[in-house]
Amino acid sequence: MGSESKAIHLHDGDLPDGLDLGPVVAIDTETMGLDQRRDRLCLVQISSGDGTAHLVQIKPESMGGKGANCPNLKAMLENPNVKKLMHYARFDVGILQHALGVRMTSVICTKIAARLVYTFTDKHGLAFLTKDLLGIEMSKQQQCSDWGAPELTPEQLQYAASDVLHLHALWEKLEAMLVREGRRELAQQCFDFLPTRAELDSLGYDHPDIFSHSARL
């Protein structure tokens, strides 16, 4: 993996005991697909913003793994004193709650933040924002690879780590824009609703969305 491999730690099934990642952690997930009711959680990426990524590989018991038996990871996800920083948190919160049986708290979503202030464009993807606000190019070549494989490739690990290593810097830029535009409190109200929004998705209330309206003749 080159020199960057020193900043990537792969853990089997759970975070190690005693690991303190601080009050704000960046989180992302890799799954077998985009349907949380069908596709299993494979990897959880975490960073404290110090240039190091901790990757927790979640394997089912049928593959010799621990399944959802990851008490350290669950404790961090449910800790209200740890802010969880994500991009498109609606999906990540949903898959984590569904797969691990947790109730997430203290969520921040950089995609929602971007949609509230980047109204001059319809581009709100992580790669675009990271390049536009931080000047950092992100490769998405491994996005559609097999994350359920027993052994992940060095390229997969590098890709997975990159999705969390820049979120702290990105949030700093976006939060400043939210404050400038008078939308920081509005963003917080959206963030606070995300665990409930994700729970509605897991119950099937995303199609049709109960917040949408279609007039009947």
Rank of each mutant, 00 (worst) to 15 (best):
Glu4Lys: 15
Pro208Gln: 09
Met86His: 02
Ile46Ser: 02
Gln57Met: 06
Val56Gln: 00
Leu178Tyr: 14
Glu181Gly: 00
Arg184Cys: 12
Asp201Cys: 13
Leu85Ala: 02
Leu178Arg: 01
Gly67Ala: 11
Leu129Glu: 03
Leu165Tyr: 00
His87Ser: 08
Gln188Ala: 14
Leu21His: 10
Leu10Tyr: 11
Phe91Pro: 09
Gln188Asp: 14
Val102Leu: 10
Gln156Thr: 08
Glu137Asp: 14
Arg90Val: 13
Arg38Tyr: 08
Gly94Leu: 13
Ser162Phe: 00
Asn72Trp: 09
Glu155Tyr: 02
Glu175His: 14
Glu185Gly: 01
His168Glu: 07
Leu34Met: 11
Glu172Pro: 04
Gly49Leu: 07
Pro60Glu: 00
Leu133Asp: 08
Gly135Cys: 12
Ser3Ala: 15
Val102Arg: 05
Ser139Asn: 15
Val102Ser: 05
Ala215Gln: 05
His87Asn: 07
Ser162Gln: 11
Pro23Gln: 03
Val44Tyr: 00
Gly94Gln: 15
Ala75Val: 05
Tyr118Ser: 06
Leu133Ile: 03
Arg197Phe: 09
Leu174Met: 11
Met177Ser: 12
Lys140Gly: 04
Asp35His: 10
Met32Asn: 03
Lys74Arg: 15
Ser162Cys: 09
Asp92Val: 02
Ser48Met: 00
Ala7Phe: 09
Gly2Ala: 13
Val164Arg: 05
Lys140Ile: 05
Thr153Pro: 13
Gly67Pro: 12
Asp132Leu: 07
Gly13Met: 02
Ser162Leu: 02
Asp146Ile: 05
Ser139Tyr: 03
Tyr159Lys: 06
Ser47Cys: 06
Gly18Trp: 14
Gly182Pro: 09
Val107Tyr: 01
Ala114Gly: 13
Ala149Gly: 06
Ile112Gln: 08
Leu200Thr: 08
Met1His: 13
Ser106Gly: 07
Glu155Asn: 08
Asp201Met: 11
Lys6Ala: 15
Leu200Ile: 08
Asp39His: 15
Val179Gly: 00
His11Thr: 09
Leu41Asp: 07
Ile108Phe: 14
Met138Gln: 12
Ser212Val: 03
Leu174Thr: 06
Ala89Ser: 12
Leu34Asp: 06
Ser139Arg: 05
Asn69Ile: 06
Arg37Glu: 10
Tyr159Pro: 04
His213Phe: 10
Leu77Tyr: 10
Tyr205Ala: 04
Thr121Arg: 05
Val44Asp: 00
Gly33Pro: 04
Thr52Lys: 06
His54Gln: 12
Gly18Tyr: 09
Lys66Cys: 08
Cys190Met: 10
Gly148Leu: 02
Lys6Val: 15
Gln189Val: 10
Ala169Ile: 03
Leu96Ser: 07
Cys70Thr: 12
